[in-house]
Amino acid sequence: MSYLIECKNLTAGYEGMPVVKDLSFNVSAGDYLCIVGENGSGKSTLMKTLLGLRSPLCGEIIFGDGLKQTEIGYLPQQTAAQKDFPATVREVVLSGCLGRKGFSPFYSKADKKLCDDNIELLGITHIAHRSYRNLSGGQQQRVLLARALCATRKLLLLDEPVSGLDPMVTAEMYEIISKLNREQGVTIIMVSHDLQGALRYGTKILHMESGAYFFGTTAEYRSTDIFHAMSTCDCHCTCDHHTGSKEVR
């Protein structure tokens, strides 16, 4: 069986300083992989390396099944500049189509159709002409998901998609992602602080801690020491800076 993404002994970091060391894991079509771990364990570095925003220091990332690096749909964390950015929902979603277009300057009919389909899929047709900056956090995430789906239908990489959302919207967001995974066959890689959500929805877990990695199915993960350490530590350290989306175990 061929993998969509296979990481072999990957070392990645900034300016020669390795943050991720000797990491191996793989992603198959249809997987729902959650990457969890402490701050500073290299989750964002790994993600940027997967996206091709940085090159690996050592080791390799192999894309299989006809996947190209630029065919990863990406849901980034929101930036400060976007808070007052004047743009309609449709303008933002359409921009997801640009990656494929090379130097061709304008959107085609097919691009616009794809954009409207994805807007419908995520249930935001009624706000398609509203301004992005006036939407709620949950609505903005849906818009960015629709944009990512315009870029690809194969694989989505989500960077903390529920951070800063209230519990109800968080649950909605998880349902949407799960539905995309089950019904549309979109492979999901999600970087998350929310361990409970990761365990409930993910099929595979990559746990990152400086120097120690775990990669396996969610069930395997539950029986590891690393998980027990993490879930007890959760009580002290992560509940206070999150928005209550996490139950204490």
Partner: peptide, 10 residues
């Protein structure tokens, strides 16, 4: 609007 997304998608 979003330089990282643009770069990541080519």
């Amino acid at each position: 609007f979003d330089e990282n997304f643009s770069k990541a998608t080519g």
